[in-house]
Simulated assay, not measured.
Amino acid sequence: MEIRYATNPTETKTYDTERLRQEYLIEGLFVPGKLNLVYSHVDRFITGGAVPTTEPVLLEADKHDMGADYFLERREIGIINVGAQGIVTVDGTDYVLENKDGLYVGLGNKQVVFKSADAANPARFYLSSTPAHKNYPTQKVAISEAEPQHLGSITNSNERTIYKYIHLNGIQSCQLVMGMTLLKPGNMWNTMPCHTHNRRSEVYFYFDMPEDGVVFHLMGEPTETRHVVVRNEQAIISPSWSIHSGVGTSNYTFIWAMAGENQEFSDMDAVAMKDLK
């Protein structure tokens, strides 16, 4: 498990491109037959990917870094499948996830195993985990069951649908809030006009992008913006003081996960376009 330490805005504004990528960009999440995890000290997020092929992949705790006997001893996790059909087995119970289906697994579940229905066309499980203080029931939500919210317009190149999976009016959790945003064809902008939410941090995971496509992800304080070039199936950490927005070379999809002081989806500090620098 890779460890990332928290940074501050005063220091971040001095980073060059390589340092920005080292601190915030998460690459190489999906490796066939492997579980890859990145532990960030920003709200103690763990972001990961699992690609089971011929053998199942077990969600395991790093005893040294987590101080836990099993992964969910003091944590909860949200899982969204971005590949072919897969199965997540939680303490002996199977949950079948089609593409873009989600699953919440709460504190105290001891064994989580990832499997693919077809090893030649494997599932690709994207994982977001945060600390938890009580158990909430394990629950699956198909994308067809997730709460949709339609935003934006073709005029502003940001027509999109937000699907909420884990949130106050959906699957219950301790602090994790998680969902997915799909941009319609011909639309490239996300989360613009932008915002911060000083009470929560966020991780974006971009996917469904063409091989030669990129997203120019904007981050930093509103008056000290920076950009990071993000490619398909890469994630980026957004501390609470940072904006998190982007524009792509074509439409794309991204998963967002938040954690912090509250779970209010609308709790954000809007940034006026005239104030961006």
Rank of each mutant, 00 (worst) to 15 (best):
I154L: 13
G213C: 07
A117F: 14
Y39D: 04
M258G: 01
V105K: 09
S240T: 11
Y15G: 05
V112M: 13
Q149I: 15
T196S: 11
V112G: 09
L176I: 09
L276G: 00
P122R: 11
L37P: 07
S157V: 00
I237E: 08
R160V: 04
A6C: 03
E98Q: 15
G86C: 01
Y163T: 02
V177I: 08
Y126N: 09
L107A: 05
H167N: 08
K63Q: 13
G67H: 11
L20G: 06
S40V: 01
I154H: 15
A50C: 07
E147L: 14
P210H: 13
P56K: 07
T181P: 01
V113Q: 06
K134G: 01
L182M: 12
S238M: 12
V88G: 12
G78P: 03
I3L: 14
M273G: 02
G49I: 02
C194K: 03
T130Q: 02
E264C: 08
I162K: 11
R44T: 10
N81D: 14
K274D: 12
G28T: 03
G92M: 08
H64E: 14
L59Q: 03
N135W: 00
Y163I: 04
M66W: 03
L72E: 01
I255Y: 07
T225M: 15
K277G: 10
A132S: 15
G248N: 00
G213A: 15
L25S: 02
T223Y: 13
G186S: 08
F216I: 10
E73Y: 00
Y24K: 01
Q111V: 13
Y206W: 02
R124Q: 15
I77Q: 03
T223Q: 14
N109W: 02
G83R: 07
V82N: 12
H167Q: 09
M192P: 00
N8M: 05
S144C: 08
L37D: 10
Y15L: 06
K13R: 14
F71I: 09
K274E: 12
I166E: 09
A61D: 09
L59A: 00
H227F: 07
Y24E: 04
K110E: 15
E60K: 15
T54Y: 12
A117Q: 15
I236Q: 06
